[in-house]
Design a protein around this nucleic acid. Structure first.
Length: 401
RNA sequence: GGAGAGGUGGCUGAGCGGCUGAAAGCACCGGUUUGCUAAACCGGCGUACUGGUAUAAAGCCGGUACCGGGGGUUCGAAUCCCCCCCUCUCCGCCA
């Protein structure tokens, strides 16, 4: 969520961002509601001031030791006279109270609409982000590695995995429905190995390894911007008012929420491997063969909390991309990095680089346009900068020295 | 699931119907003093929203809300009442 002050001052920029990102939001309405909200608040404040001041006067008149009471007595006023004044004041304040009630209700309504609108406002993309309608218009930045050539027809990971007895999709589906699978033997081990390798490399680069909850409270989902928009994509455990996260980014970024950090402690670099749960709602029919768009996978997530400064965060963003690339290079997997265009950028995202990995020759043309993944590593490797300008969901403050 | 304890500012911790946005201490910031550091002393020190004013910024003056959350009583609530949430301890149950 952006700061309303920023939105007020940059209406056109926000509108442009909405257009570019294909986000539907009514900025004009927001501006109106914002004005309403302030107007109502002002009226309310004025009444509350009166009410408070009157109340204080009553308190003092009632108190025989107060200055006001003594002054009244010195002015020759009788106790009964003062009592009458107090009674008058009380009924007057009661009247004010009846005015305050409906205004408070109005305030609630306005604020509710205001908040609803605020959640839809997109974060403007960074200037380097290409404008485009969807993932087909992402811009390739670089290609690394050579795609191997074979003089025979390649089998895909499903054929290979099942033939080797390390992948069993059918039984996964039996247990949990479509988009589920099982790994066994070397498959299960390789899965662990790749995750561990990624963890080790990030730890080498100064990240603190973390283990975090993947079932989190509602407010955490809101705080990280996944709710309300992403609600459809999350598995909800409604009885307990908790949700399964779709990425460790959620608990990691919320880790310091509400805290005041010393700037001396920044940057904070964290890495975690965690299960990721995704309903893939609305994806029916897409990517149905193979381990794509599955409901559960593990992912290694890098999160850096740094100074709230564009230049700094950009620099760390690049570092994260480089780290992810390093891993692919080590695994000798050819890949390309794309600058994700506005239309493919999330509502709260400022800039994102996807790293798309070569899977195998026969599907490359198609796959490379999607988020890449290897057979066993279901990591979409997108690197995102979030929260540049006054991100209000999670408030992490820092002190400056 | 049962029983109890508790949730107040960055922290510790008072307050238990008006003079409390909140004592005191610690921490922090500015200053004085001082071989250096420390100590001592003086001053400052919450957040959000909002009005005014000013600006390159900062700021300054004012208002409102906030003592876990929501509702109620009252002219007036951190303080009284109700509901909820959270944390902790003990017991029970248990993949």
């Amino acid at each position: 969520m952006l700061d309303i002050k920023y939105i007020r001052d940059h209406v056109d920029l926000i509108k442009q961002a909405a257009t570019d990102k294909h986000v539907r939001c009514d900025v004009d309405r927001l501006v109106v509601v914002d004005a309403d909200r302030r107007r109502v608040r002002q009226e309310l404040d004025a009444l509350r001031t009166k009410s408070r001041e009157g109340g204080e006067t009553i308190g003092q008149l009632r108190n025989p030791k107060s200055k006001l009471r003594k002054e009244a007595a010195e002015a020759g006023r009788s106790d009964a006279d003062i009592e009458t004044e107090v009674d008058g004041l009380q009924s007057e304040l009661n009247k004010i109270k009846t005015l305050i009630k409906p205004l408070e209700e109005q305030d609630r309504q306005v604020v509710e609409e205001f908040d609803t609108l605020m959640w839809t406002i997109p974060q403007p993309p960074a200037p380097e982000v290409p404008v485009g309608k969807d993932d087909t218009e992402n811009v390739e930045i670089r290609r690394v590695g050579t795609v191997p050539q074979f003089n025979f027809e390649l089998k895909d990971h499903v054929d290979l995995g099942e033939r080797l007895g390390i992948l069993d999709i059918e039984r996964g589906v039996k247990l949990s429905g479509s988009r589920n699978y099982t790994l066994k033997g070397a498959g299960a081990l390789m899965y662990q190995a790749v995750l561990r390798l990624a963890m080790d490399r990030m730890i080498d680069r100064g990240f603190t390894p973390m283990h975090v909850p993947v079932l989190v409270r509602e407010e955490v989902m809101y705080g990280t911007g996944y709710f309300p928009t992403g609600r459809d994509q999350a598995y909800l455990c409604e009885r307990d008012e908790m949700s399964l996260v779709g990425t460790a980014e959620v608990p990691l970024t919320a880790f310091h929420s509400g805290e005041i950090l010393s700037e001396d402690d920044l940057p904070i670099k964290m890495v975690a491997v965690s299960p990721c749960f995704r309903r893939e709602a609305g994806a029916a029919g897409k990517d149905t063969r193979g381990l794509y768009r599955i409901h559960l996978f593990d992912k290694v997530e890098q999160v850096i909390i740094c100074k709230n400064d564009e230049e700094t965060s950009k620099q760390f963003h690049e570092e994260i991309v480089a780290n992810a690339e390093g891993l692919l290079q080590e695994l000798e997997l050819p890949y390309r990095v794309v600058n994700v265009c506005t239309g493919d950028l999330g509502q709260g995202q400022v800039q994102k680089f996807d790293i798309e990995t070569w899977i195998h020759a026969t599907v490359m043309a198609k796959r490379i346009r999607h988020r890449g993944s290897t057979n066993f590593r279901r990591d979409d490797s997108s690197c995102v900068t979030k929260g540049r300008i006054a991100r209000r969901g999670i408030v992490i403050r820092s002190t400056t020295r």
